[in-house]
Simulated assay, not measured.
Amino acid sequence: MPSTGPARPQGKRKSTSKAEPAALPGAPLKRGTTAVDLRIYRAVVNAVMSHRLPPGTHLGEADFCELYQVSRTTVRKALQRLAHDHIIELRPNRGAVIASPTPEEARDIFAARRALEREIVPLVIRNASPASLRQIRAALEAEDEARRTGDRAGWIRLGGEFHLLLAQLAGNHVLLRFMSELVSRCSLIIALYETPGSAMCENDEHQDLATLIETGKVNEATHLIEHHLLEIEGRLRLGEQDKKVNLAEALSGF
């Protein structure tokens, strides 16, 4: 149980009636979800997407109880939702750990994501409006700012959110739900297999994609998104990394 580190998240023992936004755009809220267990869910997802909680990290219920000042019942609700979304695994006699996809699973997940995003991009172009195009450009500005300031964790997270924004703008809630899961699982895969120091999601490709969307070039945009995802997968390397993390540090700021 961590005893030192950065300021801990301030939680509440009693749930409130107003839930926070979901961790991922468009992620559906489960019946009975409260602000507190949703906050825990959101913190873990954001830490995973920012590579602050690598695969295999043990998540102790007692640690969450201390960090958020909540009961084990509240923590278990959040962990159950994380397990449902394949972000963690609940293992007998070991408890909750961040999921550790195998290389074979990684290939399958990236293949599924390529198939999904090939369908999403034409829908984004078909439904394009001045408002949606402004959202895309605003997302790219935030991503570029993170890169300019050297905020690698923020840049990686914003890169994933850019892809989720496209799924949201496609206007198909089923595709969006699948993308929410796949982006989280791809972030796990990148955390496990990325080559140290590599830029996993080049902002220039996002800029090029935005231009193709704005000009309505469906075939070129669809080809680029597939190439983009293949490039990300191609920069991964096999071989697990044994990283030890402090849960309080990983979740600070969330």
Rank of each mutant, 00 (worst) to 15 (best):
M1L: 14
T4L: 09
G5I: 04
G5Q: 07
G11N: 02
K12C: 07
R13S: 09
K14V: 07
S15W: 01
S15P: 00
T16H: 11
S17P: 00
A19C: 10
E20D: 13
G26T: 06
K30R: 11
G32S: 08
A35E: 03
R42A: 14
V45F: 09
V45L: 15
V48Y: 09
S50W: 00
P55M: 10
G56Q: 01
T57C: 07
H58M: 12
H58D: 06
C65Q: 15
C65S: 10
L67P: 12
Q69R: 15
V70N: 03
S71V: 02
R72I: 08
T74S: 11
V75D: 08
V75G: 12
K77F: 05
Q80L: 10
R81F: 12
R81M: 09
R81C: 04
D85R: 14
D85Q: 10
H86W: 07
I87L: 14
E89D: 15
R91V: 15
P92A: 13
N93D: 10
I98S: 12
P101Q: 04
T102Y: 12
E105N: 07
F110P: 11
A111C: 12
A112S: 15
A115I: 00
L116M: 05
L116N: 03
E117L: 06
E117S: 05
R118P: 00
I120R: 00
V121P: 02
V121T: 04
P122Q: 01
I125R: 01
R126G: 06
S129K: 05
A131G: 00
A138W: 05
A139I: 05
A146S: 13
A146Y: 03
G150L: 04
D151P: 11
R152A: 12
R157E: 14
L158N: 06
H163K: 05
L164T: 10
A170Y: 02
G171S: 03
N172R: 11
H173W: 08
R177K: 12
R177I: 04
F178P: 00
S180C: 15
E181S: 11
S184I: 08
S184Y: 03
R185L: 13
C186P: 03
I189Q: 07
I190R: 08
E194F: 04
G197E: 01
N203F: 04
D204V: 08
A210P: 05
A210C: 11
A210D: 03
T211M: 08
T211H: 10
L212A: 01
A221G: 08
A221P: 06
T222V: 05
T222L: 00
E226C: 07
H227V: 11
H227S: 14
H228S: 05
R235A: 07
R237F: 02
R237L: 07
G239Q: 02
E240K: 12
K243D: 10
K244M: 09
K244T: 13
N246H: 09
N246F: 04
L247T: 07
L247W: 05
A248G: 02
L251C: 08
F254A: 14
